[in-house]
Structure formats: structure tokens, C-alpha cells
């Protein structure tokens, strides 16, 4: 029997996402270094293994919550969002969303279709002031499922936060694919519960 949609092992995606934050920190660090080192000295070749191999020391970097890292992650999410939206609508041209492009309906599309594709579950709560501001709440954010710091809960929360920018970017990307500009503030309300405060220009 052939599968309808091609699939891969979920572990591949999990491990890829897990490595996105260390990668963003490493990239930021290297760009800073090569900037500071000026032109005359050649940038040393990075070795495949370094102090952070198999370790998690890199998450203690002061760059963890830096604007550069946040921006890279949010940006990755954004491009995932734009394209994921296309994939979902292309796959299901009967999708309810196409019959009604009201903002509230687009938000429902994110809560239902987008979230299910990404995390295998729907968003738990959607609130709005009916003036363009929305709050989306996920009671148990799947990316955080296995996150558990050897230090304590506070450390877990501190190091989880950058990962939330990926999802935040995804939401912004999906909205943009419907022509909606937005400003999104993600928050870990009560680990592993998260919320996304979305302000739109509509």
C-alpha cells in the first residue's frame, strides 16, 4: 500500500528543531567573531567537533536571548509558515478557510489546521477583542514535551523561550500568506503552557 502523503520519522524533525537554537547561537557567534577579526586575519576553519559537541553548554551563552538569535529563529519560522500555508491549502482545496477569509476564520485555520500539522493537536484556546488583537493558547506546547533542564524548572523555562520564536514566526508567516501583517509576542505562561499575543493591522 502506498502512503498518500510522504512521511518521515518524527524524531528527524524533533532533533532538527532542537538543534536550531544552538545553530543560531553558533552562527551569531561566528559572524560576530569574523566581524571583529577584521579582514587581514583569516577566519579559522571551524572544526566539526568543538566544546559544545554532545554538550549543552552553548545554551548558557549570553547570546541565547540576543536580538540576532531571536531574529534568525523567528525568520526561519516565518518562511516555514508562508510555505506551510501553501502546502495545507494546496493539499485540501476544499478547505473551509477558502470560503471565508475573515480574520477570525484565518485564526481558526491556524489553531486547527496549522497547529495539527505541526504538533498533532489543536490550539486549546482562542480569544479576541474583535479589534484585531488575538490571543492563542496552547496548554501543553509539544516542542517542550521533552525539555527538562538538569538544573531546575526556572532554567528549563529560560532555555525554552528561544524555541517559541520559531512557532511565533510560523504564525506570522501563515498570516502573511493571507496578506495579514502582524506583530506577535509569544510567552510561556505556565510551563508547558504557551500563549501568542497577536496584533494585526486589520
Amino acid at each position: 500500500m502506498t502512503e498518500i502523503t510522504p512521511q518521515v520519522n518524527a524524531t528527524c524533525l524533533d532533533l532538527l528543531i532542537n538543534e536550531m537554537v544552538p545553530l543560531a547561537i553558533r552562527t551569531t557567534r561566528e559572524l560576530k567573531q569574523s566581524y571583529e577579526q577584521a579582514i587581514e586575519s583569516l577566519v579559522p576553519q571551524i572544526s566539526i567537533k568543538d566544546e559544545d559537541t554532545g554538550d549543552v553548554e552553548i545554551l548558557n551563552s549570553e547570546l541565547l536571548h540576543s536580538e540576532d538569535v531571536t531574529h534568525k529563529l523567528e525568520n526561519c519560522g516565518y518562511s516555514i509558515g508562508i510555505r506551510l500555508s501553501e502546502v495545507l491549502i494546496y493539499k485540501d482545496s476544499q478547505n473551509e478557510i477558502l470560503k471565508n477569509l475573515e480574520l477570525l476564520n484565518i485564526m481558526k485555520f491556524i489553531c486547527r489546521d496549522v497547529w495539527r500539522e505541526l504538533y498533532g493537536k489543536q490550539m486549546d484556546n482562542l480569544r479576541t477583542n474583535h479589534r484585531g488583537t488575538f490571543v492563542l493558547i496552547d496548554n501543553a506546547f509539544k516542542t517542550f514535551q521533552r525539555f527538562d533542564s538538569p538544573v531546575d524548572l526556572q532554567d528549563t523555562i529560560y532555555k525554552c523561550k528561544p524555541y517559541l520564536w520559531i512557532s511565533s514566526g510560523i504564525i506570522r508567516g501563515v498570516l502573511k500568506s493571507f496578506g495579514v501583517d502582524s506583530l506577535i509576542t509569544p510567552e510561556i505562561t505556565k510551563f508547558p503552557m504557551v500563549s501568542f499575543n497577536i496584533q494585526t493591522n486589520v
Partner: peptide, 25 residues
């Protein structure tokens, strides 16, 4: 494997003297 290896906040290559201290584990 599920709670140390797939937990990005936990190392998998432990420095000498460091231990698993995750509460969930």
C-alpha cells in the same frame, strides 16, 4: 533515550564528574 537523548537541555556526552540530575528522569 526519550528523556535524556531527546531532551535538548540535557547533555549526551557527560563531562567527567557530571551526572544526570533531571527530575523527570
Amino acid at each position: 533515550v526519550e528523556h535524556i537523548v531527546k531532551n535538548p537541555l540535557s547533555p549526551v556526552d557527560f563531562k567527567p564528574g557530571s551526572k544526570i540530575t533531571n527530575q523527570r528522569f
